[in-house]
């Protein structure tokens, strides 16, 4: 293949000198012949777009670009050598005041998570403050509540349907059905495994936004209260315009509370913003 590339380069280089300053963008047609796998000569036509980019460089710098390589790099081809120069992964540099407490807050993240999960602990059978599985009335009342459910929605829960079975312990439910229940209607099956629990950080729901609101606007508005973990503006799928609400996650609860105090009822683009803590996502219907 190497000679083919060379032939290509040559024609390109020859072309380069011919047209001068005709236009900024131009389409060049390159025609060359090469041998295909069967050994036959084929004519190849390539079209390429050429854009003229002008840069102004210091004279000595331009001079130095022509230097030959030396030392261990002697004999390297022009351009970066793959063995010494690699383009790294994308790095984010988010500029903004970094709260010194963030380091501590991140370490304490585990405790906070505990507190959040502790709050809504409630037995589904007797409404007591323990796990449903530990309920002392599990055997006596469990059947009742189930019959209650089936009377509520008789058309959805015929006894043979696997969805009803998922509630009962010990029975295998294929992940395809499980995922549907766990993640609600938000994503495909099994996705909930990949996602970090969203309730991990204190999240605000901002509503009554204008259509023009962007994530940048929101982060501009809220980052003064503390470091943001996430900033999400719900957008219309077709138009890409804001649907009128956004979710802002902070690292610390205090910052979130501060933001509510300050921004709730604040006039933004002719509208009065409504800011409140987002309700945790409901797992069960």
């Amino acid at each position: 293949m190497a000679p083919v590339v060379d032939a290509n380069r040559k024609t390109w280089a020859d072309e380069e000198e011919a047209p001068e300053g005709a236009g900024q963008d131009e389409i060049i047609e390159v025609v060359f012949t090469r041998k295909n796998e069967a050994g036959k000569t084929v004519k190849v036509t390539q079209k390429m777009k050429r854009t003229l980019v002008k840069t102004v460089t210091n004279h000595v710098v331009a001079e130095r670009k022509k230097w030959t390589k030396f030392g261990d790099a002697k004999g390297d081809r022009p351009g970066p050598n793959q063995s010494t120069t690699v383009v790294g992964e994308k790095m984010d540099l988010k500029m903004g005041p970094i709260d010194v407490n963030v380091d501590n807050a991140e370490n304490e993240g585990g405790d906070k998570k505990l507190n959040l999960t502790k709050a809504p602990l409630k037995c589904r059978i007797c409404k007591g403050a323990h796990f449903t599985a530990r309920c002392p009335y599990k055997d006596s009342m469990g059947a009742d509540s189930e019959s209650e459910m089936s009377t509520k929605k008789p058309e959805v829960a015929p006894p043979s349907e696997p969805e009803g079975a998922a509630g009962r312990p010990g029975k295998y439910v294929p992940p395809s059905l499980r995922g549907d229940r766990a993640a609600g209607s938000s994503g495909p099956a099994g996705e909930s495994m990949m996602m970090r629990p969203r309730d991990e950080y204190p999240t605000l729901r901002v509503s009554n936004l204008t259509e023009d609101a962007t994530e940048e606007d929101m982060s501009q508005l809220f980052k003064r209260f503390g470091r943001l973990q996430r900033c999400f503006v719900a957008k219309d799928r077709e138009t890409g315009l804001c649907k009128g609400f956004a979710f802002i996650s902070f690292y610390s609860h205090e910052d979130a509370q501060k933001a509510i105090d300050k921004v709730n009822g604040y006039g933004y683009d002719n509208l009065i913003l409504k800011v409140e803590f987002a309700e945790p996502r409901k797992d069960k219907p």
Partner: peptide
């Protein structure tokens, strides 16, 4: 080592 800073190409070693 010495490098071209714009593209990371190694120019040489001493």
């Amino acid at each position: 080592n010495v490098w071209y800073s714009h593209n990371g190409e190694r120019l040489g070693t001493y």
